[in-house]
Structure formats: structure tokens, C-alpha cells
């Protein structure tokens, strides 16, 4: 199954890096949606199927934690796994993310392996691109 991924990040370059990292991790993806804050993310999921969301915490308008809280109010949206990709790495904050319903978190700076391992943990072994399998699974940016 090819994944539909939503990346929520106010930094446009970081959205691009996360997208490339997921591709480099070998996941077969059908669509990447992007949103610059939590409010825009809610608009995306209102009208599109999304398998997983990777979101920053610190964003204008609606931050990553507020996005989780909004999604948990909706019967359909609350089932979508949400991964926090954030510089906010204190134990106190990470515990709060997980308590509120995040499926996992990745601290910035991150390596491609950290993204791959967490996605595998959450999504299971997804289908990989043939091209990456041929390369022996090595990351190549």
C-alpha cells in the first residue's frame, strides 16, 4: 500500500527535507501533502485521505499539540497516527505529546534512520520502492 503523508511544518525547507527523508527511507508513497501550520493541516485532512501525519510543535496559528487535541475530538481523524518532529525534546514536553495522543516523536536534528525506524514501528513494514531494495537499502540523498 502506498502511503499518503501529511507534513506539517512552518519551515518550507524542513518540509522538503522530511519529504526527501521519507522517500530515502524507502517507503512507497502516493501523495505528500504539506501544511504550514496546524490549522492548514486540519483543512487538508478535511478533504483528503491521510495515512500518517508528521508535525512540528512550534508553529504559528495552531501548534502541533493543538493540532493533536483538535484531531482527537473527531472520530475519524483521531485514528490517524501523528508523529511529532520537533526541537522540543524535554522529557516533560515529550510526555505531554505522548499523553495527548502522539504516536511517536523525532527530535531535530534527526537522521534518516530515525525516521525510518519510527515509521516502521508505527506503520509496520510498508512496501518499499524497488529502486531502494536494489541499492541494498542504503540511504542516498
Amino acid at each position: 500500500m502506498a502511503l499518503c503523508v501529511l507534513i506539517v511544518e512552518d519551515s518550507m525547507p524542513m518540509r522538503g527535507v522530511i519529504k526527501k527523508t521519507i522517500k530515502a527511507a524507502g517507503y512507497r508513497t502516493s501523495t505528500f501533502f504539506e501544511a504550514e501550520n496546524g490549522q492548514k493541516a486540519l483543512e487538508v485532512i478535511e478533504s483528503n485521505w491521510v495515512d500518517i501525519i508528521l508535525t512540528d510543535f512550534n508553529m504559528p496559528v495552531l501548534n502541533g499539540l493543538e493540532l493533536i487535541l483538535e484531531m482527537k475530538k473527531d472520530e475519524l481523524f483521531k485514528k490517524i497516527p501523528i508523529v511529532m518532529v520537533t526541537t522540543e525534546g524535554s522529557k516533560e514536553k515529550i510526555d505531554e505529546f505522548m499523553d495527548k495522543g502522539a504516536a511517536g516523536y523525532i527530535r531535530k536534528p534527526f537522521t534518516p534512520e530515525q525516521i525510518r525506524d519510527l515509521l516502521s514501528e508505527i506503520l509496520g513494514e510498508a512496501e518499499y520502492d524497488d529502486e531502494l531494495e536494489d541499492s541494498g537499502g542504503e540511504f542516498d540523498f
Binding site: 522540543e88 524535554s90 536534528p109
Partner: peptide
């Protein structure tokens, strides 16, 4: 700006003797 965001967040979370510190934009 994202480089600074990562540098600041990474540095502040390693201050073990401090309560949680939040970052601006």
C-alpha cells in the same frame, strides 16, 4: 532560521537542571 531553531532547541533541552523552556519562532 531552521538551523537556529534546531541549535537552540537542542541546546536548551540539555540543560538538565532547568525546568522546561519554550522556544519562540
Amino acid at each position: 532560521t531552521e538551523a537556529l531553531n534546531m541549535i537552540a532547541g537542542n541546546a536548551l533541552r540539555k540543560l538538565d537542571d532547568q525546568p522546561y523552556m519554550g522556544l519562540g519562532l
